[in-house]
């Protein structure tokens, strides 16, 4: 038998010894790279191409605020990995604490995003305003949608921990959610760098 847990879950041991579901999530994340890659490509192709006189990244984006929300999302990844670590050691009590923290930080990040979006709209940038607005809201919006799905997933796992056994298969169900969550986090690392840090740094030069 290749994998001690495989027999419990599937009737057949796998050729590689890897659980089917774990491979599924990794292949899925590979596919997701292409999704976000295309959105980021669109943003970059249109960077600095908005009509003159319309809001620019330099005028709109607020680095301090977004730094805080970035930090929040990074720390949620820490909570997530601690939740997985707990459940894989069979400690469901600690798992519940950490997973709630993760979901809470995720929700906080979403709160920041809602605040950011309304603030930008107040300052005159909506998805219809110019190319910057169109590409910015679409890219960060889809990232936010992924975070939302993640929060729902995490809360569901929290609820399930009272009903079923999450520690079987070495916590695989949690592992899958965790991988998804970290992926959403690293996408944000890219977005924060490309749109915010580099985008604002570079803005004056391009707008001239």
């Amino acid at each position: 038998m290749h994998h001690s847990q495989a027999a419990e879950h599937a009737t057949i041991a796998t050729s590689t010894g890897i659980d089917n579901r774990k491979m599924l999530i990794w292949v899925f994340l590979g596919s997701e790279c292409m999704f976000f890659g295309s959105l980021i490509a669109t943003y970059l192709v249109y960077y600095g191409q908005s009509l003159p006189g319309t809001p620019t990244p330099g005028e709109i984006l607020d680095i301090p605020t977004t730094s805080v929300s970035t930090f929040v999302l990074l720390m949620s990844s820490l909570m997530m990995v601690l939740a997985y670590s707990s459940v894989s050691r069979g400690n469901v009590r600690n798992f519940r604490i950490w997973i709630l923290c993760t979901a809470l930080l995720g929700a906080t990040f979403l709160g920041f995003q809602v605040f950011e979006f309304t603030e930008f709209a107040r300052e005159g940038l909506t998805p219809k305003t110019n190319l910057f607005g169109t590409t910015f809201f679409t890219l960060t919006g889809f990232h936010g949608a992924h975070v939302t799905v993640g929060v729902i997933w995490l809360v569901s796992l929290f609820g399930y921990s009272f009903k079923g056994d999450l520690t079987k298969d070495g916590g695989l169900s949690v592992d899958m959610a965790a991988l998804y969550w970290h992926f959403v986090d690293i996408v944000w690392i890219v977005i924060f760098t490309v749109i915010y840090l580099i985008g604002v740094t570079n803005a004056p030069a391009l707008i001239e």
Binding site: T42, Y46, S50, K128, L131, G133, T134, T135, T138
Partner: peptide, 13 residues
Amino acid sequence: FGMNFFNAAAGGD
């Protein structure tokens, strides 16, 4: 939603 991805009037390509 009236966005501008392919709207040449707004600089879209």
